[in-house]
Simulated scan of single mutants.
Amino acid sequence: MKKIAVLTSGGDAPGMNAAVRAVVRYGVRHGLEVIGVRRGYSGLIDGDFVKLEYKDVAGITEKGGTILRTSRCEEFKTEEGRELAAKQIKKHGIEGLVVIGGEGSLTGAHLLYEEHKIPVVGIPATIDNDIGLTDMCIGVDTCLNTVMDAVQKLKDTASSHERAFIVEVMGRHSGYIALMAGLVTGAEAIIVPEIPVDYSQLADRILEERRRGKINSIIIVAEGAASAYTVARHLEYRIGYETRITILGHVQRGGSPTAFDRRLALSMGVEAVDALLDGEVDVMIALQGNKLVRVPIMEALSTKKTIDKKLYEIAYMLS
């Protein structure tokens, strides 16, 4: 193998740049020509390629986002779109592709291999941490630290004004961010898609906490469970006083990656190149325990990852 490519796709996650840097530098060290694909699968279809040298990825580990940029490509979801992408790969003599992204991106990588036998290796990068067979995905730790910092600041003002704050975090299908952020910040309530919420019971708890002298309340809700405004309407009707809403939005995706995310991304990037060199393709690099392993992409995607309900109960008991 002499020439490989790397792309980032879907929602950006802190640490993607560190993974790109590792793929480029480790690949170059092993005598490979490394091509960067701009704009994810859209760039793959359009042939938006750039050769990346050792110097081109200097100083990017600490940067959030992705220097290769990213996009969501509807055309690639079609067989015709994937055929165009495969033609570009073959036209440019690319013998292996590293895909950094979440569920949709990894699905696309698998289809490239299944339909066109393009050698692919996936690296899981999504703040939702909803990819199966890996303990952590790139970007999760940084996201949680961002949310934790924001909630701690909100607790200060909530105490000052004796108010209930409802904080909406990302997580359309997974309550992982909400659960972990709520656990480490001592939120009074955590609302996630996986567990139905009883608003009457929740209101009773907030009122009971108020009677016991607690002067602030933090409710963290995952966007896929309910909107913060819906939660506010339910609670204000029952508790009889006004709440305040904070929607953290895309600030959760940004920022310089933590040490954990940098180390994870760099290690996964190196392992992805090794997998291509070993001829082990259609696999995803996963963290299991303290070790990196290679697992079939579709096995990872078909393994449903759910939140730890015991942690949910612990968060409830400790709040």
Rank of each mutant, 00 (worst) to 15 (best):
M1D: 02
K3N: 12
V6Y: 06
L7W: 05
T8P: 04
T8N: 14
G10I: 00
D12H: 02
P14D: 00
M16E: 01
M16P: 03
A18E: 00
V20T: 07
V24W: 04
V24P: 05
E33T: 13
V34K: 08
V34P: 08
G40V: 06
G40K: 07
G43C: 09
G43I: 05
D46E: 14
K51A: 13
K55Y: 14
D56V: 02
A58F: 12
G59N: 14
I60L: 07
G65K: 01
T70I: 11
R72V: 12
E75A: 15
T78F: 10
G81F: 06
E83V: 07
A85R: 11
A85N: 08
A86L: 08
I89F: 08
K90C: 10
V99K: 01
G101K: 07
G102T: 03
E103C: 12
E103K: 15
L106T: 05
H110G: 09
H110K: 11
L112N: 02
Y113A: 05
E115H: 13
H116A: 12
H116T: 02
K117G: 01
I118N: 02
V120Q: 05
P124K: 00
D128Q: 03
I131D: 01
M136G: 03
T146R: 11
A150C: 12
V151D: 09
K153Y: 00
K153L: 04
L154N: 01
S160Y: 05
S160R: 05
E162R: 15
V167C: 03
V167E: 02
R172A: 10
H173K: 13
H173L: 13
I177N: 04
L179N: 08
M180W: 09
A189H: 13
I190V: 15
I190D: 02
I190M: 07
I190G: 01
I191H: 02
P193I: 07
P193F: 04
I195W: 04
I195S: 05
D198N: 15
D198Y: 02
Y199N: 03
S200G: 14
L202W: 06
D204N: 14
L207A: 10
E209N: 14
R210K: 15
V221Y: 07
A222G: 05
A228R: 00
Y229R: 09
V231A: 09
A232Y: 01
A232K: 15
Y237D: 14
G240H: 09
E242W: 12
I245H: 04
H250F: 08
V251D: 08
G254Q: 01
G255V: 00
G255N: 01
R262D: 00
L264A: 03
A265Y: 00
L266D: 02
L266R: 13
A272Q: 06
V273E: 05
A275E: 07
L277R: 15
L277T: 07
D278H: 12
E280F: 06
E280C: 08
D282K: 07
M284Y: 04
I285V: 15
A286V: 11
L292A: 08
V295A: 12
V295P: 07
I297N: 03
E299A: 12
D308P: 08
K309G: 04
L311R: 14
E313Y: 10
S319T: 07
